[in-house]
Design a protein around this nucleic acid. Structure first.
Lengths: 109, 109
DNA sequence: TTCTATTATTGCAATAATAGGATTAAATTG
DNA sequence: CAATTTAATCCTATTATTGCAATAATAGAA
């Protein structure tokens, strides 16, 4: 099928899956790290910073934008991308909550 | 292609992508939440807890096991799964580090 | 307008992922 | 051993993802 079933899962589970799905590629991780590091809106430098062709990076940027982690601002002939801080915080909290699930003393394994 | 390029990306980027990839499905999120909640090793109860068929869940378990987030212990005719606490902590730190990237004051957007 | 620079989209081809039925494997029980 | 139970594997159909070349779209410069 190739499609994930969603019926029967909670909204939070589906959103967590969507977010992690967006992160699930070295290029997208790299893009976010890059944007976070330069801490500014930049354009096509991303293409030069990654070992991928421009159309491919454009697709990755689109996916990151789709989950709201970054936003792109058209500035004349170029587009400046940067991290969406609000969403970033939101996602950080979501992920933090997920991993905070106390996995303390287990009575097995 | 369908295959992610890995040359040119750091080990950390590749691992983060692999981990998030493993989380990138509602069923796998649900499995981890379930295992964390019951805080114990259980077998086929997972199948009854999720809206998916047994073979499908078996596959999801395999993927989670592949990144080390869970471990399965064969106990007679059944298999007991539980969260690998050490790895869980490790991943928590990794993800925490990623999201901690200071996205503070930006001079744009 | 024409040329240039920059980003987005489209159109493939190759590969991966998802789902579940059928089957197999392994261990326990009678 | 035969029957049962449980999980894993095999198989197939379907859809998604990835990558890049080619092309389009957009805005500004000449």
């Amino acid at each position: 099928m190739g499609t994930s079933k969603t019926e029967g899962f909670s909204k939070e589970q589906i959103e967590l899956a969507a977010i992690t799905r967006a992160l699930a590629h070295p290029a997208r991780i790299a893009i976010l790290q890059y944007l976070a590091r330069v801490n500014a809106c930049i354009g096509g430098e991303i293409v030069e910073a990654l070992p991928l062709a421009q159309p491919t990076i454009s697709r990755h940027l689109k996916e990151l934008k789709a989950v709201g982690l970054i936003k792109g601002e058209i500035d004349g002939v170029r587009t400046n991308y940067c991290i969406d801080r609000e969403r970033w915080e939101e996602v950080r909290r979501l992920m933090g909550g997920f991993f905070r699930t106390p996995v303390d003393e287990q009575d097995c394994c």
